[in-house]
C-alpha cells in the first residue's frame, strides 16, 4: 500500500507544469467563464432569470451542453495521452522501469493520477457552474438565486457522466501507454468521437464506447440497454487489455 502511495506521489509530481494539468484547469473553467460573461452582458434580464424556479438546472444544462458532448470526451483524449506521453517525450520509461517498484504499481499509479485528474476536472467544473449563478449577480447587484442548490441532482448526474467517460479514459490510456507516437491515440480518440456523434441515434450506437456521454446529456435512450453498465463493462475490459499489453511488452523502454 505504501509503495502504491509513494508511486502515486511520484507520478503526481511529474505532471507539474505540464500541458495536461493546465488543460484540466482551463478546460473545466472555460465554459463557465463564457457563460458568466454572457450572463453579465445581458444584465437587464438577469434578475428575472435568477428568480426562475429551475435556475440551477438551466445553468447546469447550459454548461453541460458543450461540455458533455464535445469538451469532456476531447479533454479526456488529450489529457490521458499527455500524461503517458510525458515518459516517451522525456525518454524516461527506462528510468522508471529501473526503479524498485513492480510493473503493476507503475500501471496503477499512472492510471490513478489520470482518474484523480478527472475528479479534479469534475469538481472544478461544478464550482464553475455554481459561479455562473453567483458572479454575474454579484457584479451587477442582482440577488443570489433563491432556489436551493440541488446538490443531490448534481451529484447523481455527475456520477453518471464520470462513469460514462471511463471507457474513453481506459481505451486512451491503453493506446497511449503502448504507442510512442502521440498522433495515434489522438487520431483514434478523434475518430471514435466523430463515430460516436454519428452513431448516437443509431439503434446499435451503444456498442461504440464513446457514445455514453452523448446518451447521458441528450437524454437519448438505447432501447432497453443500460448504457451505464455498458460503460462500466467497457472500462473494465479496456483496462484489462491495457494491462495485458503493457505487462507483456518485450522492450520496456
Amino acid at each position: 500500500m505504501n509503495e502504491c502511495l509513494c508511486s502515486f506521489g511520484s507520478e503526481w509530481l511529474k505532471k507539474k507544469r505540464t500541458a495536461s494539468s493546465f488543460l484540466i484547469i482551463a478546460g473545466s473553467l472555460l465554459i463557465p467563464l463564457i457563460i458568466i460573461i454572457a450572463r453579465t452582458d445581458s444584465a437587464a434580464g438577469l434578475g428575472a432569470a435568477n428568480l426562475q424556479p429551475h435556475i440551477w438546472e438551466n445553468l447546469y444544462n447550459r454548461n453541460w451542453q458543450i461540455m458533455g458532448t464535445l469538451l469532456l470526451p476531447m479533454g479526456i483524449v488529450l489529457a490521458t495521452s499527455l500524461v503517458t506521453q510525458l515518459e516517451y517525450r522525456n525518454n524516461t520509461w527506462k528510468q522508471l522501469f529501473t526503479t524498485p517498484q513492480s510493473l503493476t504499481t507503475i500501471f496503477v499509479a499512472k492510471l490513478s493520477v489520470i482518474l484523480v485528474m478527472l475528479v479534479e476536472f469534475f469538481l472544478l467544473f461544478n464550482v464553475g457552474i455554481w459561479l455562473t449563478g453567483v458572479i454575474p449577480g454579484l457584479l451587477i447587484g442582482v440577488p443570489y438565486p433563491p432556489e436551493t442548490f440541488p446538490w443531490k441532482a448534481f451529484w447523481n448526474s455527475n456520477t453518471k457522466f464520470f462513469l460514462d467517460s471511463l471507457p474513453i479514459l481506459a481505451l486512451q490510456y491503453g493506446i497511449s501507454l503502448r504507442i510512442r507516437n502521440f498522433l495515434v491515440p489522438l487520431g483514434v480518440g478523434l475518430g471514435l468521437y466523430v463515430a460516436s456523434m454519428i452513431a448516437v441515434h443509431w439503434k446499435y450506437g451503444y456498442v461504440i464506447p464513446y457514445t455514453y456521454c452523448d446518451y447521458e446529456f441528450m437524454g437519448v435512450t438505447a432501447g432497453k440497454v443500460h448504457t451505464h453498465s455498458w460503460a462500466a463493462g467497457y472500462a473494465v475490459l479496456f483496462i484489462g487489455l491495457a494491462y495485458l499489453f503493457y505487462i507483456t511488452r518485450k522492450d520496456k523502454a
Binding site: L13, T18, R89, N90, N91, T92, K94, T98
Partner: peptide, 15 residues
C-alpha cells in the same frame, strides 16, 4: 541497490 544511466539522460524537462 542499483543506480543506472542508460544512453541519454532520462529527465523531466518541465521540472
Amino acid at each position: 541497490r542499483i543506480g543506472s544511466l542508460i544512453e541519454s539522460p532520462s529527465i523531466y524537462s518541465q521540472l
